[in-house]
Amino acid sequence: MKEPIISIRRVNFRYPEQTQYALKEITLDVMKGEWLAIVGHNGSGKSTLAKMLNGLHYPEDGQVTICSYPLKEECVWDIRKRLGMVFQNPDNQFVGTTVQDDVAFGLENNGVPYDVMEERVKNSLQRVGMADFLNQEPHHLSGGQKQRVAIAGIIALQPDIILLDEATSMLDPRGREEVLSTVRQLKEEQDLTVISITHDLEEASRADRIIVLNEGTVYSQGTPQEIFQMNEELIKLGLDVPFPIKLSETLRLQGFKIMSNHLTEEELVKEVWTYNFKK
């Protein structure tokens, strides 16, 4: 059984001058090598938790341990070397005039030797399918391409964990698919731990496990199949279930033989064909 790479125990946090806690008695583990999606409506606490994992907030009480380091000011830079964060708006992440300059920026700040840096830049861009864009100006890229470059900048630093903070919310469907497929491939190739902070349950369906936050607490957790069985509860929490799940239920009500709610359209089409049309 894999060990936790992040451990959170009875954590409380509230913003200055606020009486309500943004996080209340949060206890959870992130296992090494898994893809964990943390979902919730606006105000559920997921963005606060994302900032805490990156050392932008500290618990009022409780304990957070990341890669064996306790979340304290004296350890925060060690933690940030091991946890890379991809933000919501790709346009806000670029600092270099070209793609390769941008990917190299973090390496330069960490004092990586030039020959090592050059190799890491090329390798990381190749891994995200952007090797042909080395000298391209970032503002000429599509949204999905920009986020893939942002991911390249993170993996060049060789972290153990990648945190996606609503990283696909501003992308069109094609760009979203590009980014999520890239993350899945990197996870499998490098045994990375991926944490996806999102309100989009279609994105969350790609994960190995989902944690649902509500009003700063852990409301539920389980595999995507287990979580999506909470159809009505999720809607009451302000979350919209993925389209294939909705369609599975609608077809079942119309008399089609649908044995389970499917996470992908491909799985649903296969079952509809197998049990309803195939002779």
Rank of each mutant, 00 (worst) to 15 (best):
N109S: 06
N109T: 12
N109L: 04
N110L: 15
N110E: 11
G111Y: 03
G111H: 12
G111K: 01
G111A: 06
V112L: 01
V112T: 14
P113L: 03
P113V: 02
P113Y: 02
Y114V: 09
Y114N: 02
Y114A: 11
Y114D: 06
D115H: 05
V116E: 15
E118I: 00
E118K: 02
E118Q: 08
E119H: 03
E119Q: 15
R120Q: 02
V121H: 03
V121N: 00
V121C: 06
V121Q: 03
V121E: 05
V121P: 01
K122V: 01
K122C: 02
K122H: 13
N123K: 15
N123R: 12
N123A: 13
S124L: 05
S124A: 15
S124F: 00
L125T: 04
L125S: 07
Q126R: 14
Q126S: 14
Q126Y: 13
R127K: 15
R127E: 15
R127L: 15
V128T: 15
V128C: 05
V128L: 06
M130S: 01
M130D: 04
A131C: 01
A131L: 09
F133Q: 08
L134K: 01
N135Q: 12
N135K: 14
N135H: 14
Q136I: 13
E137M: 07
E137V: 14
P138H: 13
H139E: 04
H140M: 09
H140D: 07
L141F: 11
L141N: 05
S142K: 09
S142V: 05
G143S: 07
G143H: 08
G143F: 10
G144V: 08
Q145W: 09
Q145P: 00
Q147P: 03
Q147V: 12
R148C: 14
R148H: 10
R148Q: 08
R148L: 07
R148P: 03
V149A: 13
A150E: 11
A150F: 08
I151Q: 07
I151W: 03
A152F: 11
G153I: 04
G153E: 08
G153P: 03
G153A: 11
I154V: 15
A156H: 01
L157H: 02
Q158L: 09
Q158G: 03
Q158W: 01
